[in-house]
Design a protein around this nucleic acid. Structure first.
Lengths: 246, 246
DNA sequence: CGTATCCTTGATTCGCTTCAACATTAGTGG
DNA sequence: CCACTAATGTTGAAGCGAATCAAGGATACG
């Protein structure tokens, strides 16, 4: 399942400097001259087939990954066979940061569709971060953002009702699609109801009911995995009384 | 509420190199020679009275903080007046990492008792991390650990029952007290039932009931905030079927 | 000593889960 | 290409666990 990218005559494909995602990814805020050094860092790409793992819990940690195409879920498998989904990841997201702490990955990263990632050697990343100030800071920002969004998730799981959770989930997706240049109001879910439920701390039936309820209320239109947001204002109001977004 | 530490004749008190917490804190894995440079970084300490904020949501982010004595909670205040506690922090813990991502703190840090923190200028920390490899790596590990433990919290909130949540909470506290040289089986809670409930996604009555239930079962002994763990084995079993700890 | 805060416990209510049946879609092989 | 099967999604009815409502008790504090 592993494949390096085609190389140019000079030896290495220019990865980051030609990537149209870089505003969402690590290179943000890095000067042109330093960008070439990033290209060196991100020399390898890897293709992952749908349902296949990018890494598994317990795997030795050697690299972080930037999603180039496709999408992933992170999950933790429970002993009784159930899973807890801890995150969904789309293009530009950085995966694998959990592994730094122990040197082992602490969750599974599974492709939700055929996907491609940039492999970023962690050792080299640390080296380069010591030289390129902007990279260091951007890397810290990426980790910090993950902490902030995990905190938001804790709030959702700790204090929101089923409908509010799904509203927050849809708005979060919408916002992330927007940041990537896609429609804020119309998109395809890459995950099942069960995976959404696991992520939101709900059962799949409850997720399905909440979808139906939203549709009945004219908030969204649902056709299986195809979602259209009809009234984002009211969706926002559902969760506004809950949280002052941080 | 701000106070610098008494300075020695040479100008700066040696902070990290004489701190008995350093194994839990940033200096871990740093050579003696570099330690002196850390002392420079951590030149300022600050005292926070019980119930007072170390920082508030929206405050500009300038420093991270290491808890030297006392303890804190992190919380997010909801518009309707309720709060969601997102973490409890004890000696050696690093606070404020959430601020890196936006340049503003995204939650409140409130002292649970009269406390003292080391103020670590973030700018200087980044500078020093570019020079001291061990510090860079340790800092990354601290952030990564926070991500991992937040994921654990998401799992708790997403898939555990009230009793299981409290068991996990008590075992986590026990483990953290142990790491700090205190008794694993006997300790004082610094937070109220309501704060525990907010943290665990439960109401205070439910927390109280769970405590009573555990006592009736002979798992622990409770007298207000004084806890004694009597059967940690059975407490562990309560949550083992849930999660393969990562 | 009196008051506010925190904690405990009981009775009732409500929201989500569970169980179950069925519908729809996707995937597979003849 | 169609028939068949597995996977996924929807909906209803019943059960259960935590929230809510309510009252009283313990403890800390001025």
């Amino acid at each position: 399942m592993m494949a390096t990218v085609a190389v140019t005559p000079t030896g290495l494909k220019k990865v980051c400097s030609q990537c149209n995602l870089f505003e969402l990814c690590l290179p943000l805020g890095i000067g042109d001259s330093d960008m070439l050094r990033l290209d060196e860092l991100v020399a390898v790409q890897r293709r992952i087939k749908r349902q296949q793992p990018l890494y598994r819990s317990g795997d030795p940690f050697e690299a972080v990954y930037a999603v180039r195409t496709g999408s992933f879920k992170s999950d933790i498998l429970l002993e009784d066979g159930r899973e807890q989904v801890t995150g969904f990841h789309m293009t530009g997201d950085i995966l694998g940061l959990d592994g730094i702490s122990t040197g082992l990955h602490s969750c599974n990263a599974i492709a939700l569709e055929d996907s491609e990632v940039c492999v970023i050697s962690y050792t080299k990343l640390e080296e380069l971060a010591r030289v390129i100030e902007g990279l260091q800071h951007q890397f810290h920002k990426v980790m910090s953002s993950e902490i902030v969004s995990d905190r938001g998730m804790m709030m959702l799981l700790g204090s929101m009702h089923a409908n509010e959770r799904l509203a927050a989930f849809l708005l979060d997706l919408s916002q992330r699609f927007t940041a990537r240049g896609f429609s804020p109001t119309e998109f395809h879910l890459r995950m099942t109801r069960e995976e959404i439920g696991s992520y939101l701390g709900l059962k799949l039936e409850t997720v399905s009911r909440a979808f139906s309820h939203f549709q009945k209320e004219g908030l969204i239109s649902v056709q299986q995995k195809h979602i259209r947001i009809l009234d984002s204002g009211r969706l926002k109001k559902m969760i506004q009384h809950q949280a002052s977004v941080c």
